[in-house]
Design a protein around this nucleic acid. Structure first.
Lengths: 377, 377
DNA sequence: CATATTTATTCAGACGCCGAATAAAACAAG
DNA sequence: CTTGTTTTATTCGGCGTCTGAATAAATATG
């Protein structure tokens, strides 16, 4: 954050950083820290002056569209969280126009209610395969539509640039921004929640596939003839680990009819976990199997990508204690020890509101790469 | 190859290329094409003069160590193949020193016999997880030893730099050098032969994992409790598709005892394929299952990495006609159509001697990145 | 032979970055 | 209070890379 530190990060001399930052300071894009350190301790020498982005350059709204929920967050140009909100609203099977109308209205209402008059861009994270270059949702387990031009549609309605991103990718990015260790080397971030997604980072940058999207790792088939998945297939990783899958299978154990609501709420999931922790063997078995699938999944990632870091995150980590024994057994039974030893496994109990932070940061980065480069340091 | 083309590839102006190449031409590193095009056709304007690397700058020997075979190739600095040889020699379970002695002697004899007195470096491709930075074979299904410092050991014996590489990575690199389309975007190259390996290229550069190695995708477990694999596990992709696996299972069908030789020769494999093509239902079943596993494997790659290109190569392609129906069915049944459509699937009937070409090119690239940059264009 | 077309080279200049010197801002010691 | 030490920031001359414009070179067309 201080000029010297920026230089070290970027491998450039302090002189260069002074040159570059001078113009930004003149323009008011950056501001220098006012106060000196209150208790600088035993450090000698001229104190470093940290630089921050000004908070007057406009703000960005980050949005996550879940299965039956919308999360919103307003962030100013200094990166400060100004407001956030979540709304219960089923989005499944809306028509394309209807969906975009609902999203545009929700975003407009959020901006109005929070008094945000300087919104410059929208970052939107959603489930499925997202073409981040053209702003198209190519495929989604939630939205019925395929090849939906979501970014242009929203951009037209809102009159500002809209960037869309896969939700697991946004989460991966957010988590890596919090932990510098995850920004070096290869980090595979498995998000378990509404579904299962994977964001993959190489040296802090999101891996992009053939159509500038991320991975659909959650729909890798692990068990032939396994349980039904939202994607229409059977035996996908998601069909064992996602909230809807655990909830459905828990209902089936109780011989209750298949649940009418496809996506359970947070409290329904908490109840299942509590019942399992209390010793319900049938439920424990369910989590044991889920842990095994998680171990198989992480094993595939390790054998295929040799990552430095594996992150398991999202609401699904609420039951990590129940998953862990079978997870570790499955992982060990199918990975080469030398490779397994290379990857450190992190469990990050992140909630979905971290995700909106990620999509905002990614949007800022895309919108102004020069600024982002300085910020990244 | 002509200056203008190099500039277009590197995104630089022709002026810059002239500057850069001028010094190389003076030093004799590059040579300009003498003859004008014999039949330039209907092209107007001053004809382009192509530049080549001189063939007098020394040569490189590329080596592949298989299960019971060593392939050698001598390439001069212009990239011309000067000589090649293969030797039947079981390498399994040799001690570390013994193995390196054998390799050093084989390479020395090859250089002597071919009159190559200007060998500047060795590129060596082998199976297993290779730390390409430190030149260490961290794990290998062939060599018993683990964390074997193969590069330094051979370098000491031969008195020249030795670069080692995973064999599937080397093959991927070689194939991509032949087809420019594979050098843009993401290319996953699945090599089926002695074992199953995968080389992954991003924009023509080999993907490197946490320890600067490639993937061990062949040892992803696809079928719990499946057949025995060389790695000690069960149900790995390799345990269905590799030559040794097909040969073993073919023997078992005939109620013959398990074969004593672990790795069958090319003619033994050809015999099995011929028998299957003649209509042997049990063998056809074997290939059907192998094709299914191949489809599952490619499905995982597509869902995880969203590659632009999938290449299936290596000796195992000899039976691609037998694999294809079940391969395509398995692939279709478990991939999201939008993602599957992004990846074009190439079957390249490459033999292992292409591999030595790849490891030489990779070695040249590592040894002199500046030259390689020009050559890549 | 003039014209068009494409390739290659020359040259002055822009741009980014750096090293060394210098200035600035703190603390420590006498 | 003065001097020295330490670390941060800025200034400035200069080096190296690359570029655009102009020019030269080499071929085909009419």
């Amino acid at each position: 954050m201080a000029r010297v530190e920026i230089g070290q990060h970027l491998g450039m001399s302090p002189a260069t950083i002074s040159d570059l930052t001078a113009s930004f300071l003149d323009e008011g894009v950056l501001v220098a820290e006012e106060s000196s350190d209150p208790v600088p301790g035993l450090i000698r020498g001229r104190p470093k002056v940290r630089l921050f982005f000004a908070d007057t350059l406009g703000s960005v709204i980050g949005v996550w569209t879940g299965f039956n929920r919308i999360e919103l967050r307003l962030v100013d140009s200094a990166g400060h969280n100004r407001a956030s909100r979540h709304i219960e609203r089923p989005l499944r099977n809306l028509g394309a126009d209807e969906l975009m109308d609902v999203l545009a209205e929700t975003i407009t209402a959020f901006a109005r209610d929070t008094g945000a008059s300087d919104v410059k861009a929208i970052g939107l994270a959603c489930q499925g395969y997202v073409d981040t270059r053209d702003g198209i949702v190519a495929w989604s387990p939630v939205l019925g539509a395929r090849d939906l031009p979501l970014a242009s549609g929203l951009s037209q309605r809102l009159g500002m640039p809209v960037l869309i991103e896969n939700d697991a990718s946004a989460m991966a990015f957010a988590i890596a921004q919090r932990d510098p260790a995850l920004r070096s080397g290869r980090t595979a971030c498995l998000m378990v929640g509404d579904g299962v997604g994977m964001g993959f980072l190489i040296n802090g940058e999101l891996y992009r596939g053939a159509r500038f999207g991320g991975s659909e790792f959650g729909h890798v088939r692990l068990r032939r003839g396994g349980p039904q998945c939202r994607c229409g297939g059977r035996g996908c990783i998601e069909a064992f680990l996602a909230d809807y899958a655990l909830h459905r299978d828990a209902q089936l154990i109780d011989h209750r009819p298949a649940p009418t609501v496809l996506m359970p709420g947070e409290d329904a999931m908490d109840a299942i976990v509590a019942q399992a922790r209390a010793g319900d063997t049938a439920l424990l078995n369910l989590f044991r199997e889920a842990g095994e699938v998680l171990g198989d999944a992480v094993g595939i990632l390790i054998q295929t990508l040799e990552p430095d870091h594996i992150v398991i995150c999202g609401p699904g980590t609420r039951a990590i204690d129940l998953l862990r024994p079978s997870f570790e057994a499955a992982l060990e039974s199918q990975t080469i020890p030398e490779l397994r030893a290379l990857a450190t496994i992190h469990v990050v109990e992140s909630s979905m509101d971290l995700l909106t932070e990620g999509v905002v940061m990614q949007a800022l980065r895309e919108l102004d790469l020069d600024l982002a480069r300085v910020k990244a340091a």
